[in-house]
Write a protein that binds this DNA or RNA. Structure first.
Lengths: 188, 188
DNA sequence: ACGCCAAGTGGCAGTCTGTGCCACTTTGGC
DNA sequence: GCCAAAGTGGCACAGACTGCCACTTGGCGT
């Protein structure tokens, strides 16, 4: 965990938050590609050089927003929760920042690409986590498929949620997962 | 289809192919990010400016390799094939260029991101194609889920295929789709 | 055979992302 | 208070990509 004792560490978190806020606002105001790192840094009162010390790339600012949520999913699984339970659990307290980011992602191909790639990384970690120590080949495949399909369902659910004003995100996810579990007619 | 009558058109296809070959070879030799557009263009005996007239971005060279295959999937569906049939149909004649590209994608996060984004675009087109004119909300959701899950299975299958030397790609895909159809235990 | 038009190309200047390096300030431990 | 370490800014630079303009060349009518 991050220490919050020193002044140094507090300033860092503060700068980080300022960068995220600035980026989110600017992306929403003028679009992801039109907003430059220079502007974001200026808004957060920091040099562009420093921006890249906090985030490896322009897109990474938004990635950072959700990292905490994934950690909670991992934690839940480590305590014995199923994948579905873990995901649904973190969706409860909807930070509206989550919606803002997802809205941006849905409208910006470059951001979508970044997020999908991050999803694959997360999928790999989850597979390792869910897999028993000694698993046969078939078990591995089944788990990979489970996680990948769950993420696919999550993505479909979020899209559906974004286009349905006032709806509950968790409910969309539950519906999608239920459909998945009951078995898709792949041949239809 | 592309006309092949004129000399002009032939030269264009030739340049395009030269760029693809050069890019593929250079990416394999020194890695995607280490290979510069300048080098690729030079190898294909063309100016860097011209490279970007053929491909919108450095990654797009590899995207182009698979565009033809997706068109075949679309064509098959328009002639009444199911999604699974259409996909398995195009996988038969395995161009080894397909494997080379997938190998690169698997090892290069930036390429993976681009390909996943392209996958989402393809998914959207397939959903429109598979959906009857008047479909209720539930039908739409089910179709989106079907396509997204199928692509997830495809991705898992390809990964599995790449890491199993000498195996048949189509067989991996069939196995994955079968698992999907029989219903995943989401709560496991 | 000639010449015109449009398509294709190259070069150049310029923007933006991202990185390495070095000097400078600040913080936390002693 | 002093010193190493952490954090920051500025600079120079590479590489991806774009707009613009001048130039060449293939297609085509006459």
């Amino acid at each position: 965990m991050t220490k919050l004792c020193g002044l140094r560490e507090r300033k860092k978190q503060q700068t980080r938050a300022a960068l995220v806020d600035a980026a989110l606002a600017l992306f929403e105001a003028k679009g992801f590609e039109a907003a430059t790192v220079e502007e974001i840094a200026a808004t957060a009162e920091v040099s562009p050089r420093t921006f890249f010390r906090y985030f490896a790339a322009k897109e990474a600012v938004l990635l950072a927003v959700h990292d905490g949520e994934f950690d909670r999913v991992v934690a839940a699984i480590e305590q014995g929760a199923t994948l579905a339970e873990a995901i649904l659990g973190t969706l409860g307290d909807d930070h509206e920042q989550f919606r803002r980011v997802q809205e941006l992602v849905a409208h910006t191909p470059a951001l979508l690409a970044t997020f999908l790639e991050r999803s694959v990384e997360q999928e790999r970690r989850l597979v390792d986590l869910l897999l028993p120590a000694a698993a046969d080949e078939r078990q591995v495949l089944r788990t990979r498929l489970l996680v990948a399909a769950t993420y696919a369902a999550l993505r479909v659910a979020i899209e559906s949620w974004l286009t349905t004003p006032g709806s509950d995100c968790a409910q969309h996810v539950r519906d999608a997962l239920a459909m998945l579990e009951q078995g898709l007619v792949v041949t239809g």
